[in-house]
Computed example of a mutant assay.
Amino acid sequence: MRNRRLLAGLAALVLLLPLSLQATPRVVVSIPPIHNLVSGVMEGVAEPVLLVPGGASPHDYALRPSDMRHLQAAQVVIWVGRDLEGFLERPLARLPESVTKVTLLKDADLVRHALREGGIWER
């Protein structure tokens, strides 16, 4: 149910943006799983830009100059939140207020589960 609400909200945001701006939306997403979801919603409209490539860790990723250019040109930035992508906290704070920033852990009403221990999660 929550995933449907998240996808519906993202779809509305992405699909209504071009109507208000009369242009292709410039959407930047942080990590591959979010990129896959947003790409599906934006299919036929535009392709979102992915910041952290597959195989790279979002915990200690360092933005490249091209990543900063993508962020500065974005109309919408979708990220999980500072607990996963702390490297984005300062750059997002420096973006203009006109950039819509979607923090999934805060804005999407996601449920956070406690850290699992034992069994296959044994350290």
Rank of each mutant, 00 (worst) to 15 (best):
S66D: 13
P18N: 12
D60V: 07
H35L: 02
R26I: 11
G9W: 11
L88H: 09
P33H: 03
Q72M: 11
P18S: 11
V27A: 08
D107P: 02
L51F: 08
L115Q: 04
S20R: 10
S57G: 09
E122S: 07
V28N: 15
L51A: 02
V102L: 02
D60I: 01
E122W: 01
L37T: 14
R2P: 00
M42R: 08
S20V: 14
V76N: 00
G119C: 06
A46W: 05
E85I: 13
A11S: 15
D67C: 13
P53N: 09
W121L: 04
R5G: 05
D83G: 10
R82P: 00
V41E: 00
R90Q: 15
F87D: 11
F87T: 14
S30T: 11
L88K: 07
A74S: 12
P18I: 13
N3P: 04
E117W: 09
A56G: 02
R94N: 08
R64C: 06
T100M: 01
I120S: 03
Q22N: 06
Q75R: 06
P91W: 05
G54W: 05
S98Q: 05
A108T: 12
V80M: 02
G81W: 14
Y61S: 02
V80H: 12
V28C: 01
Q75A: 03
N3I: 15
W79E: 01
V41F: 00
V102P: 10
S57D: 06
Q72T: 06
A23S: 09
P58D: 03
I120G: 00
D109P: 00
A23T: 15
P53W: 05
R90V: 14
V29L: 10
S39R: 02
A56L: 02
A108M: 11
R26M: 06
L51I: 15
K106P: 03
Q72C: 01
D60L: 13
V77C: 14
E97T: 08
R94L: 11
I31Q: 08
L63D: 10
H59W: 01
R94Q: 12
S20E: 13
G119F: 03
H35T: 08
L10T: 13
